[in-house]
Amino acid sequence: MSKVHIVIPARYGSSRLPGKPLRDIAGKPMIWHVWQRAAESGYSSIVVATDDQQIVDAVERFGGKAVMTSREHASGSDRLAEVATKFAWDDQDIVVNLQGDEPLLDPALLVRVAQLAESATNAGLATLVSPIYAVDDLVNPNVVKAVFDQNKTAHYFSRAPIPWPRDAFAISKNAMPEGDYFRHIGLYAYRVGVLKSIPQMPASPLESIECLEQLRPLQHGVEIKVAVVDKAPEHGVDTEQDLARVIERVERQLISA
């Protein structure tokens, strides 16, 4: 059986929320909360990949493992590939990418995407999607859409509404059209051999146009397997408003515990 590693990319710099991984949530830095979600998945190989010594120090203070990575990486895949190479993980191992700004992520989703990658032996990546029920989400470019076949193999990801409901939208773009529409949940599991090859792939025109890094391996013929989950996880932390929402949620949980 492949070994599963959870890697948590955590950059210090953020234009909207500087020092984000170290921001306080109920007396603990955000990165601590994300680490707890990873630990609750049951996988023991967990490492934070960062570009700042302050984050390394914070992780080591609570007993976690962190590694410094280059500040020059253009994408999360590049950072994860550096980590896999540093630790000489086997090409058949699985790396799950848990973003460092997801303190409320359900650990069951980590297990789901890792198991999908393990079982899909011909796929280089696995990821998750959830149904779209609101037309506002369907037309929102910040909600990434996914199209896949009956074997749950991804065909395309886009910020545009796909598939395009031509006849329904010709009548009204304010009502949710009939049909199945899915949002992409930005949670990936990579087979290590494929992960290490992604930074060597030529830049993809589709990746550049859509600003979606998963389109690079897809355009280069890497199979991406998809599993459908009932609902998307709660949005991560990008802004002060997001942080306030998460703090309120965590404090409510502590009070009710």
Rank of each mutant, 00 (worst) to 15 (best):
M1G: 10
S2K: 14
H5M: 11
I8A: 08
R11N: 09
G13V: 15
S15W: 13
L17C: 00
P18M: 08
R23H: 00
I31C: 05
H33V: 00
W35L: 00
R37A: 03
R37M: 07
R37I: 02
Y43V: 11
S44Q: 14
S45R: 10
I46M: 06
V47D: 00
T50I: 10
T50A: 08
D51R: 04
D51E: 07
D51S: 07
Q53F: 14
I55D: 03
V56C: 04
A58F: 08
A66M: 06
M68Y: 13
T69Y: 03
S70N: 12
A74C: 13
G76D: 10
A84D: 13
A88G: 15
A88V: 14
D90L: 04
I94K: 05
N97W: 09
L98H: 03
E102A: 07
L104C: 09
A108C: 00
L110T: 03
R112T: 15
S130E: 00
A134M: 08
V135E: 09
V143S: 06
V144A: 09
V144K: 13
V147S: 01
K152D: 14
Y156N: 11
S158P: 08
A160T: 06
P163C: 09
R166V: 14
D167G: 02
A168G: 07
A168L: 03
Y181Q: 03
R183M: 04
H184C: 01
V192P: 00
V192G: 00
P202L: 13
E213Q: 15
Q214F: 14
L218D: 07
H220G: 09
V222N: 08
V226D: 05
K231W: 02
P233D: 06
P233S: 02
E234T: 12
H235C: 13
G236N: 08
Q241W: 12
D242V: 12
L243C: 04
R245L: 11
I247P: 03
I247V: 14
I247N: 10
E251Y: 07
R252S: 14
R252P: 08
